[in-house]
Amino acid sequence: MTQRTDIRLSLPSKGRLGQAALDFLAEAGLRVNKPNPRQYSATIPSLPNLTVLFQRAGDIVVSVRDGSVDFGITGMDLVAEKRGENGHVLVLHDALGFGHSTLTLAVPEDWPVQNLEDLRAYAARLAHPLRVATKFPNLTATFLKQHAIPHRLIWAEGTLETAPAIGYADMISDLVSSGQTLRDNRLRPLADGAILPSQAVLIANRGALQTRPEVLSVARRLLEYIEAHLRAQENLLVIANMRGESPEAIVERIFSRPTIGGLQGPTISPVYVRDGSPWYAVTIVVRRDQLPDAIADLRAIGGSGIIVTPVTYIFEEEPPRYKAMLEALQNQE
């Protein structure tokens, strides 16, 4: 068989991750160009040597594991369920920030069961093994065994929430986001029944990264733009005018406050005013969740004319997750 020479990234073709993955990549500067919506391949103009494929989210893990695809974006739930034990699937980024859900045990709301201890006792009183419908047999079985709950798994396609009402299962193990679908079907999650929190992740084939330098190069580009975009989402650019004797005097005042130190420090430049008084413009990066405190700190040390603007990217000297990937590649698990 001829060795493949192209580089492939698989994205979910539909479902909860489909459009969200396309939107995320576009926001990160990696817009996917798919002229024909019926085609199952596309390109990323900023990465011209990369071919984008569209698959079912679960199939992406299998394709990356088997090496027919080099990279994939899918849910951590599917990665944990299908990655296998050969170490071929490497998680490059475990928190892309979309597609959040939790694999959870849920029981009929009229059961006298609130937690795993109650479930263990209830299962012992049933005339048959506890039947659990799920699309995640590996994760569910491991969790139930860890908690010593006898059970029989029922593999099910489609909507699981109806399984207890139909009667082919007693309870379910399924992904839960808001919980509204459970409530609509008179189910409720166990208080301690969360098996795995999940969100979208970026994965890669370990062998391709180790043996093909061009794949490693694309991994760096992907991680660089993704990391820069995600970090930018957490921060804002703040510019303020400030009167002071010198830049050094202003820096001293800035560093006396906890929220306005910037990434490494402030950028300070002179402001030329008509009366010749000593004014400076201070530019800093502030955490989005600390903005109210940062504004208060700036005002407290004489800041005025404060401008706040979003940040598109914040590039590091080297992406932290790229460093982590290189370390992981040295581990032959």
Results as ranks from 00 to 15, higher is better:
Gly97Ala: 07
Leu153Glu: 02
Leu230Val: 04
Tyr322Leu: 08
Trp279Gln: 04
Asp77Ala: 12
Ala80Gln: 14
Leu78Met: 03
Gly207Asn: 12
Trp155Gly: 05
Trp111Asp: 07
Thr74Ile: 08
Asp184Cys: 04
Gly99Ile: 10
Pro37His: 15
Ile203Ala: 10
Phe71Tyr: 01
Val218Ala: 11
Arg274Ile: 12
Ala26Tyr: 08
Val251Asn: 05
Gln264Pro: 02
Leu105Met: 03
Ile226Tyr: 12
Asn241Tyr: 07
Gly72Thr: 06
Ile268Asp: 09
Leu298Trp: 00
Leu25Asn: 15
Ala21Tyr: 05
Glu317Cys: 08
Ile195Lys: 04
Ala21Gly: 06
Phe54Gln: 10
Leu92Gly: 12
Ala141Ile: 10
Pro112Val: 07
Val62Tyr: 06
Val79Asp: 06
Val282Phe: 07
Gly29Leu: 04
Leu130Met: 11
Thr259Gly: 00
Gly67His: 10
Pro292Thr: 10
Ala194Val: 03
Lys145Gly: 11
Asp110Cys: 09
Glu245Thr: 01
Val311Pro: 06
Leu329Trp: 13
Ala156Ile: 00
Arg188Val: 03
Arg231Ala: 13
Asp170Met: 04
Arg206Leu: 14
Gln19Ser: 05
Leu230Ala: 09
Gly97Met: 13
Ser173Ile: 01
Ser269Arg: 11
Val273Tyr: 06
Ala26Gly: 04
Glu327Val: 06
Pro258Gly: 04
Leu230Asp: 04
Asp66Cys: 14
Asp6Cys: 01
Arg16Gly: 05
Asn138Met: 07
Thr102Gln: 09
Glu27Tyr: 14
Gln19Glu: 13
Leu326Gly: 13
Glu234Lys: 14
Arg56Ala: 15
Leu237Val: 01
Arg321Glu: 15
Ser63Tyr: 12
